[in-house]
Design a protein around this nucleic acid. Structure first.
Lengths: 114, 114
DNA sequence: CTCAATACTTACGATCAGGTTAGTACCTTA
DNA sequence: TAAGGTACTAACCTGATCGTAAGTATTGAG
C-alpha cells in the first residue's frame, strides 16, 4: 500500500491510490478494454507476477478496477477499469501530456547532472 | 530521488519529478509566491529539515524550482516555482480535483476494508 | 503419466525513501 | 558571555516497497 501522504489540495488521496511503480501503467492498459492477467503480464514484461497481482488487488480494493472471473477449464480472469478508475485515468491525462512534453528536458538535465 | 518508472503514455517522467511524499505539496506552496526555507518549514510542520532541503534540491536540479539567496545578516533564501514548475503544477490540478471529489469515498472504502 | 497452460501464492532478501538526532557557521540581542 | 535565529549538513536507522524464485490447483494434450 502506498505511503502516508500529507493532504492539502487533494493530491494526497490521489497519490495514495495511483502511487507506486506500476499502478498508473496498469490502469492505462485496462482503461478502455478488459485485459486478462496473462495479457497484462505480456504487455508489461518487466513486472513480476507477484507485483502485478498485488497492484491489481489493491486497485480492486480501492474500487478502481473490476475483476471478473470465468469458471472455465483453463482459468480465466479479466480486469477492467470501473467508472472511478476511468475518471482517475482522465485526471491523469494532463500529467501524461506534461511528461510527454517535458520528459526529454528532464532526462537531459538529469543526464548532465549525473 | 524517485523510483525508476516504466514509461508509456508519458507518466513515467512526470512521476519521477513529482513523486514522493512531499514534492507536490511543496510545489503547490511556492507556485504563486516565493517562500523562505523557514516559512516552508512552518507551513509543512511534519516535514523534517533534511527532507525539505532534499526535496527542494532535487526539484531545483530538475528545473522546477528556483533558489535565490540573499547575502544578508541572518541568511535568507527564497524558493519559487520556475515556468516549468508552474506548468507541472497546472498539470496536477485535475488530479487534485479528483482527489477532492473522491478522496472521501476512497478513505471510507479503506476504512471498511481495514 | 508426464507436461503445459492458466492464475495465482508464499517465503525470503534487497533496496530505497523517509525519519531522527545532532552538529555547523554566521551574526544579533540581552 | 550565552542564547537564539537562520539555513543548512551529516551519520545513522527503520520500514515500506520491490524483486526473485519457487510452489499450488486444475485439466487437457500427447
Amino acid at each position: 500500500m502506498a505511503k502516508k501522504q500529507p493532504d492539502s489540495c487533494g493530491l494526497g488521496p490521489a497519490f495514495q491510490v495511483i502511487g507506486g511503480k506500476w499502478k498508473a501503467l496498469i490502469l492505462w492498459l485496462i482503461h478502455t478494454e478488459p485485459r486478462r492477467f496473462g495479457e497484462l503480464k505480456r504487455l508489461v514484461p518487466d513486472i513480476s507476477e507477484k507485483m502485478l497481482i498485488q497492484q491489481l488487488r489493491e486497485m480492486e480494493a480501492d474500487g478502481l478496477v473490476h475483476r471478473k472471473m470465468f469458471h472455465e477449464v483453463p482459468p480465466r480472469v479479466e480486469y477492467s477499469a470501473t467508472a472511478l478508475g476511468v475518471s482517475l485515468d482522465d485526471a491523469l491525462i494532463p500529467l501524461a501530456e506534461w511528461g510527454k512534453t517535458y520528459g526529454d528536458v528532464i532526462a537531459a538535465r538529469r543526464q548532465a547532472a549525473e
